[in-house]
Simulated scan of single mutants.
Amino acid sequence: MTEAVNPWVKIGEGPEEETVLAVDFDVTGRLEANFRDLVGLLPVPVAVWQTVPPAESYRRMLTTEDYLAWWREYPDKGRRPVGTVLGYCVGSVFASELADEIEKTQGSRPRILLFDPEMPNTLSLYRDFGKVTEMMSVLSPEEKQQLLARAEEVRAEHGEEFDAVSARLIELYEEAGGAAFERLGLDEDLGAELLGLFRAYVSYLAAARKLDPSRGWSQARAITSAGSSTGARQAVEELRFEASHDELLRSPQAAAAAGAILRPKGE
């Protein structure tokens, strides 16, 4: 696995009067639109840095503080103000916490702009397990159906017990994926990285569950998809668009609304 050496990656070039930080779990092969898509659609160039998951999360479950410590040293800290913190889905939970920490450091509170903000729960975990299963091209349609059926058995057995459900789903994913990768003769390092991906994502969800984003969300503006989101109800303002959740960050209309919000505070 390629080790992440930097907790942030620059995804948008623009004037450097203010920095914009974006929190999301973005990995190669993701089907959903991402902040890179949004940045490419913004009406004006914006300097944007996005979180990178800690490499260690591919190997073991991390704590909430592990993530915050990894992202706490954001780019240009102490030299250039953070004007806005963005969050997508569960990343909105971490975005709220980072905004609190940034306020203490720079003495002014950054704006918070959230896209379909959501607290992680077992429903979203099962939903994303289904997406990951569909992405596993090494599995036949029959194998995918069997894997999803076993996930339904976990749901019936453990209900809303997030920690128990997440542990079992990781086991199922590693069992199915490991057998398939071995059958295909995949390189051991590549196989380990693919298997670790789901563990890293579940670690990200579990860590977010330990945070209370209510203060940040109550001061945020939310851009939401056609189905809205539970977290958006707490926002100061919700701007809803017809795009689906998966396509929200690829919506020209949503990008135009975000661009208006991301203008430097002095303009």
Results as ranks from 00 to 15, higher is better:
14 G>D: 09
14 G>T: 08
15 P>V: 10
15 P>K: 08
16 E>A: 09
16 E>N: 06
17 E>W: 13
17 E>N: 13
17 E>M: 07
17 E>Q: 15
18 E>M: 03
18 E>C: 03
18 E>R: 04
19 T>D: 14
19 T>C: 11
19 T>E: 13
20 V>E: 09
20 V>S: 04
20 V>H: 06
21 L>T: 07
21 L>C: 06
21 L>F: 05
21 L>G: 06
22 A>M: 11
22 A>N: 12
22 A>G: 10
23 V>H: 11
23 V>F: 09
23 V>N: 10
23 V>L: 15
23 V>C: 10
23 V>P: 09
23 V>G: 07
24 D>K: 07
25 F>T: 04
25 F>R: 08
25 F>D: 09
26 D>Q: 15
26 D>I: 07
26 D>Y: 13
26 D>N: 13
26 D>L: 09
26 D>F: 10
27 V>C: 07
27 V>R: 10
28 T>M: 11
28 T>I: 12
28 T>A: 15
29 G>L: 07
29 G>T: 12
29 G>R: 14
30 R>N: 04
30 R>D: 05
31 L>W: 13
32 E>D: 14
32 E>A: 10
32 E>T: 13
32 E>K: 13
33 A>D: 12
33 A>C: 10
33 A>Q: 13
33 A>E: 12
33 A>S: 15
34 N>R: 08
34 N>L: 00
34 N>K: 03
34 N>Y: 04
35 F>Y: 15
36 R>I: 01
36 R>F: 00
36 R>V: 00
36 R>C: 01
36 R>Y: 01
37 D>M: 01
38 L>K: 06
38 L>R: 05
39 V>Q: 02
39 V>G: 02
40 G>S: 03
41 L>A: 11
41 L>F: 08
41 L>V: 09
41 L>Q: 13
41 L>K: 14
41 L>E: 07
42 L>D: 04
42 L>W: 01
43 P>L: 04
43 P>Q: 04
43 P>S: 05
43 P>E: 08
44 V>G: 08
44 V>A: 09
45 P>F: 00
46 V>S: 00
46 V>E: 06
46 V>M: 06
46 V>I: 14
47 A>F: 11
47 A>N: 15
48 V>I: 12
48 V>F: 01
48 V>R: 07
48 V>D: 09
48 V>E: 10
49 W>N: 06
49 W>Y: 08
49 W>G: 00
49 W>L: 02
49 W>K: 05
